[in-house]
Design a protein around this nucleic acid. Structure first.
Length: 498
RNA sequence: GACUCGGUAGCUCAGCUGGUAGAGCAUUAGACUUUUAAUCUAAGGGCCAUGGGUUCGAUCCCCGUCCGAGUCACCA
């Protein structure tokens, strides 16, 4: 391994510190406060309560001035300034020159306010808790007259930020808010479902037959069984088996895997939430969906008004509800319900919607929708009643031939949720999956695979059920203002280096 | 997968019409006991992503490769 000049120097310093009798990697440290506890609660009146604090954190800046020094340390709550004088720590002070940005220290002392007014900790005892060998990027932070923070030499290289997220989290400290919000969004969602009495469950990730969505899977191999296994593309079919089994509300928050392209909206592994509730239909599910999103926004953000990508979006319920074919009418000026393949192709051509060669009917509808309608759906909109061809797991519409009871929720032109009144007539389900098998035989790699055991479960009998899937990553993007999925994942998929 | 842009010091970047590199921060040495982008003085640090080509000579021009970003395509 090649080491840089700075790393070699730090390794030497580490030796020197150890020769001086210090432990560079001790086992624990007793903290009494976080940086934020002190900054928020300290005042000149109650300073006595802060006469003996113990804090720890990573050195982010150090200013040595002869026989006194200042540094800023960063802990999980934020940054705080430390003041050190040779008089107070005579034994340690000479070692200060061997401390670097990136080292972790523990400090005991009293809180005070400096001449310039910054709340700081005056060190009485100091201990090295971890010596850092590899230098961190060193951005500088300036506060201008208006109190705005200006970052100089920010650590901006996306590739390194994603590959070394641990560095990114330290140096670009504010990004941790996105991940904290992500965690809160998920726990609020869980809380909402748990309070309703629905059961969080786990179903197989390794599946002998994949299903529940139209996508290409990852394939792996089980050695002992000597069979191929697929990483799940959706939870749907297993969760419905559990409804058959007698649970009346089950949900799962989990990773799905799709072997497809990656871009700002797609990562090969992504998190989704799927929930199935017995005796309900998609109308009920729409209300539940807007309620859960509304609740999460209020709990996590404290508001339902968000700004995303320069657009103001209201998550106030109720959300708009639009029938899919009404939207077609609205945005292409034509009723295409029941249109022939020829007519659809013509519309696609007129509107410059590009289609793959020999696209099936369902694909064309889908393309026309995503090109001409979807981008217009900025405020939350439930698009309801889809053509049967593109929804093989949804129940036939109770009033209208050729449609199913399905909705998708679009916000800012992007799909956030997908739901239907679940198809529970085993005869119809078999027909539809057989139709998929035909599409598959014709070369549609994404068409669903027929799962006999799933059909068997439906033949045992599944009560009327409503099902919903929410793309957690996209919801998090929306609620945190991020425009790339990579920025809501700690470790987005990248090509291996070299 | 296609196109565009990018890869130069630990970090952020500059580098002219081709003449083998520059700044700030970081680092090192010195000064400084309330600094805060600390300051002042001095110094070190580079296989210019990578492999070829053109040229007397390539960070720069040409071709290939790798990695990333963006757009499109594929894809919910």
């Amino acid at each position: 391994m090649e080491r840089t000049e700075q790393e070699l120097r730090r390794l030497e310093e580490l030796d020197l510190l150890e020769q001086a009798g210090l432990t560079a990697y001790p086992y624990s440290f007793e903290k009494t406060h976080n940086a934020l506890d002190i900054l928020k609660n300290y005042s000149d009146e109650n300073s006595a309560e802060f006469s003996n604090v113990s804090i720890a954190g990573r050195i982010m800046a150090i200013r040595r001035m002869g026989k006194a020094a200042f540094c800023h340390i960063l802990d999980a709550s934020g940054k705080i300034q430390i003041y050190m004088r040779k008089d107070d720590i005579p034994d340690f002070y000479d070692n200060l020159k061997y401390l670097d940005i990136g080292d972790i220290i523990g400090v005991k002392g009293f809180v005070f306010r400096t001449k310039t007014g910054e709340i700081s900790v005056h060190t009485k005892e100091i201990q090295l808790l971890c010596k850092s060998i590899t230098p961190l990027p060193v951005p500088k932070e300036e506060t201008d007259e208006q109190g705005n923070k200006i970052i100089h030499d920010a650590f901006t290289d996306k590739e390194t930020r994603y590959r070394q997220r641990y560095v990114d989290l330290i140096v670009n400290y504010p990004i941790r808010d996105v991940f904290i919000k992500r965690s809160k969004i998920i726990s609020q969602m869980r809380k909402y479902f748990d309070e309703k009495g629905w059961l969080e469950v786990e179903t197989p990730i390794l599946q002998p037959i994949y299903g529940g969505a139209s996508a290409r899977p990852f394939v792996t191999h089980h050695n002992a069984l000597d069979i191929p296994l697929y990483l799940r593309i959706a939870d749907e079919l297993y969760l419905k088996r559990l409804i058959v089994g007698g649970f009346e509300g089950v949900y799962e928050i989990s990773k799905n895997f799709r072997n497809e392209g990656m871009d700002k909206m797609h990562n090969p592994e992504f998190t989704s939430m799927e929930i199935y509730v017995a005796y309900k239909d998609y109308n009920w599910m729409m209300e539940m969906t807007e309620d859960v999103i509304n609740t999460i926004a209020n709990e996590v953000l404290g508001t339902t008004d968000i700004n995303y990508d320069g657009k103001n979006i209201s998550l106030q319920k109720p959300f708009k509800r639009e029938k899919m074919f009404d939207l077609f009418k609205k945005y292409i000026g034509k009723d295409i319900f029941g249109a022939s393949l020829q007519e659809l192709l013509q519309i696609a051509e007129e509107n410059k919607v590009e289609l793959p060669a020999n696209a099936p009917y369902s694909k064309i509808i889908d393309e026309i929708f995503s090109e001409l309608v979807q981008p217009n759906l900025i405020n939350p909109t439930f698009v309801i009643d889809y053509p049967i061809e593109i929804s093989p797991l949804a129940k036939k519409h109770r009033n209208q031939e050729g449609l199913v009871e399905r909705f998708e929720l679009f916000i800012n032109g992007s799909e956030v949720a997908n739901a239907f009144t679940e198809l529970n007539d085993p005869r119809d389900q078999r027909n539809r999956l057989e139709q998929q098998a035909i599409e598959r035989a014709k070369g549609d790699e994404e068409a669903m695979v027929l799962d006999e055991d799933f059909l068997h479960a439906l033949e045992i009998g599944m009560p009327p059920t409503a099902g919903l899937g929410i793309g957690i990553d996209r919801l998090v993007m929306l609620l945190t203002g991020q425009t790339s999925i990579r920025d809501v994942l700690f470790f987005p998929q990248l090509k291996p280096e070299k």
